[in-house]
């Protein structure tokens, strides 16, 4: 039975839920806000990229050099 012999590690963490529902919700909310911010920045970055491509398309051969 050597697959669970490390279960009582000293560095073990407790994964019991709802010990402190309010702070667990607050921590989740922070993670979710970070994800939203990251997604938003990704979309903005992509829009800028597309704008740049459009801009370059609009330039003449001469201007592109």
């Amino acid at each position: 039975r050597n697959w669970d012999d490390e279960e009582d590690d000293v560095d073990d963490v407790d994964d019991t839920d709802d010990l402190d529902p309010e702070s667990e919700y607050a921590a989740w909310k922070l993670r979710e806000l970070r994800r939203i911010k990251r997604e938003r920045e990704a979309i903005e970055g992509r829009e800028k990229e597309l704008e740049e491509i459009e801009r370059r398309k609009g330039l003449t051969e001469e201007e592109r050099k």
Binding site: D9, D11, D12, V13, D14, D15, T16, D17, E24, Y25, A27, W28, R31, E32
Partner: peptide
């Protein structure tokens, strides 16, 4: 949206993470 806790083991040791 699932904020339940998960235990995660790596070569470095044990850490807490979450489903989300």
């Amino acid at each position: 949206e699932d904020r339940r806790k998960l235990k995660r083991k790596t070569r470095m040791g044990t850490a807490l993470t979450f489903i989300d």
